[in-house]
């Protein structure tokens, strides 16, 4: 379990991480979600003892990272796949890591096999494609057979095949009972990968909950109503004090559940052609929650938010 308490990181006047507290539960995939520049990577570096927090602390299984003995056996991490010497072979890269934590040399070949790099193990890492580098990074994370795994934006820049591979891999790791903490700015990816979500914006915690709860809480659940007596129905709904929006030849009602709308329609004698729940998407939830906290705000973000909300209704 990873536990951050009041974690803060300042660079001069800039506050990268602001009094952040969260827990990453054992044996699940926890997504670490936030727009670019929200402080995800800085937080991950503080978890690994690479950056010193300005305030607060973060512990892994009750211990500070710097107090772990042979830490690769407890925590495996992939922060940046390009952190390899280009003229060192994949096997040599893993070999020195293994040596430093007293991990048996044969484990190097095992992890190379797990990530499917056995054939290119002797090749210099500088010639690897991004997908191969990512696999090498994952091999390094798995080297010590750790219970806790950290991945920073693991699908960034990967092709669909690579994304699918990583997604399956995360699930496999969690199924093996490991704690997986994976950051991303891609919501759709997190919806498929993570069971829990820690959401941050501008270094501050926005929410921590299960992925389902996050979507349920953050998105407005609406009901789409189609009826030939739309005007009557609108009037009846208006009297009930719910918010109504016109959407072509139908109404979008929020603040009243399906059963109640159906009963109201029956009482007012309106025929219903459609009465369907509109589930919000993770994108909507994300935009709604982090809309105010995007570091580099542009009009594009607003346009995207507007676009997404109308699309969500059509769906």
């Amino acid at each position: 379990m990873i536990e951050a308490v009041g974690l803060t990181k300042r660079y001069g006047k800039t506050v990268a991480v602001d009094n952040l507290s969260f827990t990453v539960p054992t044996g699940r995939v926890t997504g670490f979600l936030g727009p670019n520049g929200a402080g995800k990577s800085t937080t991950m570096r503080m978890i690994l003892g690479l950056d010193t927090p300005t305030g607060g602390s973060v512990h892994i299984g009750g211990k500070s990272y710097r107090d772990l003995k042979n830490p690769l056996r407890t925590v495996g991490a992939l922060l940046d796949a390009k952190w390899v010497h280009p003229n060192r072979s994949a096997r040599a890269h893993l070999a020195w890591m293994a040596k430093s934590n007293r991990i048996a040399a044969k484990r190097v070949d095992e992890v190379l096999d797990i990530v499917g790099l056995t054939a290119v193990a002797g090749k210099n890492a500088g010639g690897f494609s991004l997908g191969m580098s990512q696999r090498l990074g994952i091999a390094g994370a798995l080297l010590g057979d750790p219970q806790v795994l950290l991945f920073d934006e693991p699908v960034n820049g990967l092709d669909p095949e690579g994304i699918l591979w990583i997604r399956k891999f995360m699930h496999r790791l969690a199924d093996e009972g490991r704690t997986v903490f994976v950051s991303s700015h891609l919501l759709s990816e997190m919806a498929l990968t993570a069971q829990e979500l820690v959401v941050i914006g501008r270094g501050k915690l926005i929410s921590q909950s299960s992925t389902e709860d996050f979507v349920a809480q953050a998105t407005e659940n609406t009901v789409l109503v189609r009826s030939p007596q739309l005007a009557d129905l609108r009037a009846a709904l208006g009297r009930a004090g719910v918010s109504i929006r016109d959407e072509g030849d139908s109404l979008v009602v929020s603040g009243m559940d399906i059963a109640e709308i159906g009963e109201l329609a029956a009482r007012s004698g309106a025929v219903l052609h459609e009465l369907s729940p509109q589930r919000g998407s993770l994108e909507e939830a994300f935009m709604r929650l982090t809309g105010d906290s995007v570091e580099y705000h542009t009009d594009i973000a607003d346009e995207a938010a507007a676009l997404l909300s109308t699309e969500g209704v059509k769906r």
Binding site: R45, L48, G49, L50, Y65, R66, D67, L68, P71, L72, A77, L79, D80, K82, W83, V84, H85, P86, M97, S100, N101, G140
Partner: peptide, 18 residues
Amino acid sequence: TTEYRFGTIRTAFQAVPN
């Protein structure tokens, strides 16, 4: 300096925090 150039210094400190 190559460790800093290629980021392997972070992997090194991650493997050995001392």
